[in-house]
């Protein structure tokens, strides 16, 4: 894997989505802990949010290889 500076940049870029994903799952766990029967309702929403936040990290990953 050449271009180690790119990888460092990607590591920095991944901090934002990482915090976002952490917040999403923290909220999901909170919700399920408060109301366990809402689990089935919350799960797809949490995973949808996870996928959307993760998209930023994925874009960064691809750019780290392209640039």
């Amino acid at each position: 894997m050449d271009g180690s500076l790119n990888v460092i940049g990607y590591g920095l870029a991944a901090i934002g989505p990482a915090i976002g994903v952490g917040l999403i799952f923290a909220a999901y766990i909170n919700g399920v802990a408060r109301q366990p029967e809402a689990r089935g309702l919350l799960q797809p929403i949490a995973i949808l949010g996870f996928a959307l936040a993760e998209a930023l990290a994925i874009l960064g990953f691809v750019l780290a290889f392209i640039l």
Binding site: M1, A51, E54, A55, I58, L59, F61, V62
Partner: peptide
């Protein structure tokens, strides 16, 4: 763009 890149990049990065 994100739909395709998400699947591709996850598989690519994981296998790497």
């Amino acid at each position: 763009l994100t739909l395709s890149l998400r699947l591709f990049a996850n598989m690519f990065a994981g296998h790497t």
